Simulated assay, not measured.
Amino acid sequence: MAVDREYTAAEVASRLAIEQVIARYVHAIDDRDYDTLDDVFTPDAKFDLSAAGGISGSWAADIKPWYAENLGVFENYFHTFMNIRVTLDEDGAGASTKSKVINPCGIRGEDGELHHFEIVGSYDDRWRKTTDGWRISERTWNHGWIWGDYPQAGLPAGDF
């Protein structure tokens, strides 16, 4: 059972800093500003995006180039993160978060029409406090569902 307690000033500062990094991610990904994401993830951050038909790998070597190459299929998207649960490690050097995600987006179908739908799921992230601030060192996507006018409904979710 969770017990509410007062947070120390250091805990409050870490929680706010982590939430600001999440905000940096949301705005950068929606703006397709992949270089700004270097200030969100450690270079060796490990990803598992396979639940959405994506890839697994490290940020700098695999995921960043994959984002730049594959996310262009979305004509628009608008990430929303909410209900962020932050758990700080006792030593203050690490943390974990679980974020609920709703991502309204649109893809042009083979019919030439723009199809809008929502991708729903959550991210489990591990964090490391670095000399440059808090950075995500591991990210796993937990796929919930896709609803709406998904033009590739016969394909596995995310197989774009």
Rank of each mutant, 00 (worst) to 15 (best):
N103G: 07
H143F: 14
F41I: 01
E113P: 01
D30P: 02
W145S: 04
P156D: 01
W127A: 00
G54I: 11
K129M: 06
S50P: 03
P43H: 03
N103E: 13
M82W: 00
Q20S: 13
D159C: 01
E90F: 02
K129L: 15
Y150P: 00
S56E: 11
L155F: 10
Y67H: 08
D38R: 10
F160I: 12
L155V: 10
R15M: 14
D159L: 12
I22M: 11
D125Y: 04
F41H: 01
C105R: 13
S58F: 12
W127Q: 02
I119A: 15
F74D: 03
R135W: 09
V3A: 15
I107P: 06
T130Y: 13
N103F: 09
A2I: 15
G148Y: 05
D89C: 11
T36L: 05
L88E: 08
D89E: 14
I22E: 12
E118Y: 10
A28L: 02
L37S: 11
V86I: 13
S99V: 00
K64I: 06
D149S: 04
E6F: 15
A9Y: 10
C105D: 10
A61I: 05
H116K: 08
V101M: 10
E113A: 07
D4S: 07
H27R: 14
R128F: 14
Y25P: 00
V40G: 04
H115R: 11
E6S: 15
G109P: 02
I84L: 06
G57F: 04
F74M: 15
W127H: 03
G158Q: 12
G154E: 03
E90Q: 06
W127M: 02
Y34D: 02
G154W: 00
F78W: 15
R24D: 05
D31A: 15
E110C: 05
E90N: 03
G148I: 04
E69Q: 11
S99Y: 01
T36N: 02
W147K: 14
F81I: 07
E90K: 07
D38N: 12
A157K: 02
H115T: 07
H79Q: 06
D132G: 07
I136G: 05
